[in-house]
């Protein structure tokens, strides 16, 4: 590997759509950037903004939140909660000085292996262009409950 900066992108995704979509990309032997790491929860509605902050604090250069398309949620509407939380999360991250391109919300269904590949590659490219994040405010985000006001609703 060259000296090129290789970002690490944490993918927080639901079990039913995006994780399965990534499985499909594998079954179809599609190729994408090895920079993404998936972390599975059952529903994107489970994704606590604290998870995103922890990822950045630990060294992620980008975070992708992904779930089922609106209307297709395995748990009826958990993804709508994710959708409603996301703008607040973006605002908060912007206040922390994290570029908007480093965090992304995508709806990727179980049949959209190609979309997963596209998003993984696109985001890797974009975050690589931004360079390393090196976000050192871990202390500020340590207590999970301190973020409570940001994730109500």
């Amino acid at each position: 590997m060259s000296d090129r900066f290789e970002p690490v992108i944490a993918v927080l995704c639901c079990n039913w759509c995006t994780y399965a979509g990534a499985d499909l990309a594998g079954t179809a032997r599609m190729k994408y950037a090895p920079n993404v790491r998936l972390l599975r929860v059952m529903c994107s509605g489970r994704i606590d903004p604290a998870f995103v902050l922890r990822a950045f604090a630990e060294g992620a250069d980008g975070v992708l939140i992904a779930g089922c398309h609106p209307g297709d949620c395995h748990y009826i509407n958990g993804n709508l909660k994710t959708m409603r939380r996301f703008p607040q999360l973006k605002t908060m991250l912007a206040q922390f000085g994290i570029e908007p391109a480093r965090v992304r919300l995508e709806w990727i269904s179980a049949s959209e292996g190609d979309v997963f590949v596209k998003v993984a590659n696109e985001m890797t490219g974009q975050v690589r262009a931004l360079g390393p994040l090196n976000w050192k405010v871990r202390a500020a985000v340590e207590p999970v409950s301190g973020l409570a006001e940001h994730h109500a609703g």
Binding site: G45, D48, G78, R85, V144, H151, G153
Partner: peptide, 21 residues
């Protein structure tokens, strides 16, 4: 077990078993 309530609870009073914080 979707865990949406877990991520939503303002007091972190709900444990999402097998996917805890």
């Amino acid at each position: 077990g979707c865990g949406t309530c877990v991520a939503t609870c303002p007091s972190s009073a709900i444990v999402g078993r097998h996917f805890t914080d």
